[in-house]
Design a protein around this nucleic acid. Structure first.
Lengths: 106, 106
DNA sequence: ATAAAATGCAACAATAATGTTGCATATACA
DNA sequence: TGTATATGCAACATTATTGTTGCATTTTAT
């Protein structure tokens, strides 16, 4: 919504719909706003706003290409989330350690 | 707020204040609602509600002890977040891989 | 038995978040 | 040059989120 200052990435990924958008970008690659919105039940304008939230948080980068706005996943912004959650690994149950290892690709 | 059905953990950690509460529980261990609220600028009732959101998402467990409600961090619920974010590691910039390794304790 | 301490409940108020619709504007294309 | 396409803007309507305050209830400790 803001487009100027850095928004909270945690707030950005709080919405299931926004997480779905990120997932779609990850699986299908860069796409225009209209193309993205066709996959969801809400209006194009609603999707546009969700994309703005994601862009403000730095998780998505948008650049104009002709008359289209191409959206691209910028996963780097998620490192902050990875860092945050990694701190809590020390408090996970011992039995979850195996899962953690898998997540970390060890 | 709900206390019955499983709430979204992503929504729960979206609030900076709620993340601060989790951090306090991690560092200082189990505490009563009043003790927790003393560390924040908002009212006890506000903190109570934040704790409810965290409890609904399973990130905090609360049990009664006498006249107090003792809150405990339940980091297991954050595994879902770790799993989600780990998927995006493949999209991180190559230069961030080193950071990722550190996060994973490799 | 009483008073203090720790909460729970409920009513409100102020915002923020989500979605919609209608209309204007910029590009691409036949 | 027209027309269809891709967006942007803005006004609204609903809900959800956050916080507050006042008062009732449950325990603990004199």
């Amino acid at each position: 919504m803001n487009t100027t200052k850095q928004a909270d990435v945690f707030q950005a990924i709080a919405s299931p719909l926004r997480r779905d958008i990120l997932h779609k970008l990850a699986l299908s690659g860069d796409q225009s706003i209209t193309t993205i919105s066709e996959d969801f039940a809400v209006s194009r304008q609603a999707v546009t706003r969700h994309l703005s939230v994601l862009a403000d948080a730095g998780v998505v980068q948008i650049h104009k290409q002709g008359r289209e706005q191409i959206c691209a996943l910028h996963a780097d912004a998620l490192v902050q989330v990875a860092e945050w959650v990694s701190f809590y690994r020390q408090f996970w149950d011992r039995k979850l350690d195996a899962i953690g290892d898998v997540l970390d690709g060890e």
